Amino acid sequence: MSRRIVVAGAVSFYTQVGIQEFPVRYAPTWAPRWLATGVSGAAGHIARVLRALGDDVRLCSVVGRDAAGAAITAELGRERLLGPGIVEGSTSSSGVTLVTPDGRRMGFPHLAPVNGVTYPWDLFASQAQEADLLVMTNAKFVRDLVRPAARLGVPIAVDVHLITDLGDAYNLPWLESAEIIFCSHECLPVSPSLWVERLFDRYPRCRVAGVGLGGQGALAATREGTLIRVEAVTPREVVNTLGAGDALFGTFLHVWAATEDPIRALQAAVVHAGWKIGHRAPVSASLTCEELSALKNASMPPTVIGRWGT
Score class of each variant (00 low, 15 high):
90 S>D: 12
147 R>Y: 09
52 A>C: 06
62 V>G: 00
133 L>P: 03
139 A>W: 02
68 A>Y: 07
83 G>F: 08
111 L>C: 00
94 S>D: 07
125 A>H: 11
117 V>M: 08
117 V>R: 07
110 H>W: 04
73 T>D: 06
97 T>L: 01
59 L>G: 03
113 P>K: 14
72 I>M: 04
104 R>W: 02
122 D>R: 14
143 R>I: 02
104 R>N: 14
147 R>L: 15
117 V>S: 01
132 D>W: 03
76 L>H: 07
83 G>V: 10
105 R>C: 09
48 R>H: 13
61 S>R: 06
109 P>R: 14
91 T>Y: 05
53 L>W: 13
149 A>R: 06
132 D>K: 04
110 H>P: 00
118 T>S: 12
109 P>C: 11
79 E>W: 11
112 A>P: 00
70 A>Y: 02
138 N>L: 04
95 G>Q: 00
119 Y>L: 07
94 S>W: 13
66 D>L: 03
61 S>A: 15
52 A>M: 07
134 L>S: 11
53 L>H: 11
148 P>V: 11
60 C>P: 03
108 F>E: 03
88 E>L: 09
49 V>M: 02
95 G>S: 00
153 G>W: 08
54 G>P: 04
49 V>G: 01
84 P>V: 11
148 P>T: 12
63 V>W: 00
72 I>V: 13
73 T>L: 06
107 G>N: 14
95 G>I: 02
153 G>D: 04
46 I>M: 07
125 A>E: 14
70 A>S: 13
148 P>L: 08
56 D>K: 04
86 I>Q: 11
143 R>Q: 13
89 G>V: 04
151 R>L: 14
86 I>G: 08
137 T>G: 03
49 V>Q: 02
137 T>L: 12
80 R>A: 14
127 Q>A: 15
103 G>A: 01
109 P>H: 12
123 L>I: 05
90 S>A: 13
129 Q>N: 09
93 S>F: 03
142 V>K: 05
51 R>W: 00
113 P>C: 14
59 L>E: 01
91 T>R: 14
85 G>H: 03
86 I>L: 15
55 D>K: 10
139 A>S: 14
53 L>M: 12
68 A>M: 01
133 L>R: 06
90 S>I: 06
147 R>C: 10
63 V>R: 04
88 E>C: 06
131 A>M: 08
52 A>Q: 09
106 M>K: 11
71 A>T: 11
86 I>Y: 11
50 L>I: 10
84 P>C: 08
141 F>Q: 05
144 D>P: 10
68 A>L: 00
62 V>D: 01
62 V>F: 04
77 G>V: 04
75 E>W: 07
84 P>D: 14
69 G>N: 08
122 D>M: 05
109 P>I: 12
129 Q>T: 14
92 S>D: 10
126 S>F: 06
70 A>H: 11
60 C>I: 08
106 M>P: 00
141 F>I: 10
117 V>D: 00
92 S>F: 08
116 G>Q: 13
47 A>Y: 09
120 P>V: 13
123 L>F: 03
129 Q>C: 08
95 G>P: 00
135 V>C: 13
108 F>A: 09
87 V>R: 10
79 E>H: 11
107 G>Y: 01
143 R>H: 09
98 L>W: 13
135 V>E: 09
85 G>P: 01
136 M>F: 07
69 G>D: 08
105 R>P: 00
133 L>T: 05
89 G>N: 06
66 D>Q: 09
48 R>K: 10
143 R>V: 01
63 V>A: 02
112 A>S: 07
121 W>D: 02
